[in-house]
Simulated assay, not measured.
Amino acid sequence: MPIRFRFSIPLDDILVFSGFTDYPNSLFGDLKIKFKINSNAFIFAQVNPIISMAKYYTMNKTDLMASGPDKLKNIDLLFRNWSLGYQYTKQFTQMGCTADLITKLSIEQITDSRLKNLMCSINPVTLSIKNYVVTEVTANMSGYKATDDCLQRVREFYANKPFVVPSQRVEAWSFPTSVTTTGIRTSQNIPLSHVTDLCLLFPKDSRSTTCYENPCYHNMQVTTCGRNFPDMLMNTLDQQFFQMQLNASNLDLLFETTDEFEDALTTPINTASRRLNPHTDLTSFMITLQCERNSNGALTFDGLDTNNQNVSVEFRGAPIYQCDTDCYYNVDLKGKRPPPPILCSIHDTFWLFGPANGGSCVYDVNNTFDEVISQIQG
Rank of each mutant, 00 (worst) to 15 (best):
T223D: 10
D148E: 15
F315T: 00
Q239A: 14
V125L: 11
E136C: 10
L237W: 08
K130N: 15
F7W: 12
V362T: 14
S312V: 03
F202A: 01
Q375C: 12
G29Y: 07
F229Q: 04
A318E: 12
F35I: 02
T147V: 14
G297N: 06
P176T: 02
T186P: 03
N235W: 05
Q94L: 12
P278A: 13
S83P: 07
D238C: 05
A54P: 04
Q221I: 03
A318P: 08
V154H: 08
E371I: 05
T210M: 06
E108V: 10
G29V: 06
T266S: 11
E262H: 09
D364L: 01
I50C: 08
F285M: 03
A318Y: 12
D324F: 14
E156I: 06
Q239D: 14
M119P: 05
Q94S: 13
G29C: 02
R114N: 14
A248T: 00
T368E: 02
T21H: 10
N40V: 07
T58H: 07
R169Q: 02
E256P: 06
L11K: 05
N219Y: 13
D259L: 15
D370C: 11
S193C: 13
S187Y: 03
N310W: 06
N214L: 01
D324E: 13
K32C: 11
L299A: 11
F229M: 04
C327R: 09
D149F: 14
M65R: 15
N219K: 11
A318C: 10
T103P: 05
K71Q: 12
S128N: 14
K55D: 12
E262W: 04
R80H: 08
P278K: 07
G358T: 10
K36G: 09
N307F: 06
N40F: 10
K334D: 13
T258F: 10
T236D: 00
A99C: 10
N307V: 02
K130V: 14
L299P: 03
E213T: 09
